[in-house]
Nucleic acid binder design. Structure first.
Length: 273
DNA sequence: ATGGTGGGTAGCCCA
């Protein structure tokens, strides 16, 4: 006879989406919140300062709790929630002042969960830190993240645009992309060291095992080609004890077919906590 | 095959 739980375990639904300008696509975010009903949504590339963040559009839908780390014109991250939260950190893992991380603690259902919202640098076009400073900055960002991950002690979920597709099946053509920033062996090794530093569980591949298609990003530059050539750049990784509580995970690819879409699509994970 | 598109911003940067 199955053991009966003394308390119902709360279901918490967490989403992440690189929105590529939250002001331009505030209506799309609203539609996503209405249709998918996540408890928390982590946005990357909001491309605005906090003062111009479209709070009202999300407040009206019940997402009245916010942690916004904005920047004028570029980058920027925001976590919006219908669960109370407390902002706990803003790491500058590139050490250059760019707004690429905000960390929160959930205070209602999921009480105590730490949720890290991160936008790892894209890294420029040339995969060589001598020829391209941005590539070196991307690797340095990952190394600092790794030093941080070694000290993580609480149940933590880290989500966002990692700008790396680690597995061969995470891109439309592994061999063709070996020298393309986002899929080079050096980036994959560096990300693997980050994973090993805390034992992060890749929820995308826990729930959608390789080699099943799992893409989250398609270049705007190839839309005209009508070819379906994507990469898995967006991720949700959990510390082991939290990963054991994830019950479902999916990619909401349909937002690509909305008018004027982001080049990224959202991911959603549900937890029984 | 050595381009292409998109967003924010202000005379290009970033993706």
């Amino acid at each position: 006879m199955p053991e009966k739980r003394s308390k119902a375990s709360p279901m918490v639904k967490i989403a992440t989406w690189n929105i590529n300008s939250v002001r331009l696509r505030a209506q799309q975010v609203g539609r996503f919140l209405i249709e998918q009903e996540p408890d928390v949504l982590c946005l990357q590339e909001i491309k605005t300062v906090a003062e111009l963040f479209p709070y009202d559009a999300f407040n009206a839908l019940g997402y009245t709790h916010h942690a916004v780390h904005g920047q004028k014109g570029y980058h920027g991250v925001a976590t919006i929630s219908r669960i109370p939260l407390r902002e706990v950190s803003r790491h500058d893992w590139q050490d250059n002042g760019e707004a690429r991380h905000v960390g929160v603690e959930l205070l209602g259902p999921g009480n105590g969960m730490i949720l890290e919202n991160v936008y790892i640098p894209a890294g420029g076009d040339i995969p060589d830190r001598e020829a391209n400073a941005k590539f070196g900055q991307k690797l340095d960002f990952l190394e600092r993240m790794t030093r941080w991950a070694e000290k993580v002690e609480r149940p933590t979920l880290i989500v966002g645009d990692f700008n790396i597709a680690p597995l061969e099946c995470d891109v439309y053509d592994h061999k063709a992309l070996l020298k393309v920033v986002s899929h080079t062996p050096l980036e994959v090794e560096t990300l693997t060291r980050f994973a090993d530093a805390h034992g992060w569980v890749d929820l995308g591949r826990k729930h959608i095992p390789a080699p099943e298609r799992n893409w989250t990003w398609w270049s705007y530059r190839t839309y005209w080609q009508e070819k379906d050539r994507g990469r898995r750049l967006d991720h949700m990784w959990a510390s082991p004890e939290l990963a054991a509580q994830s019950t479902s995970h999916r990619i909401v690819e349909e937002t690509r077919r909305w008018e004027q879409p982001s080049d990224h699509v959202p991911l959603i994970t549900e937890f029984a906590l």
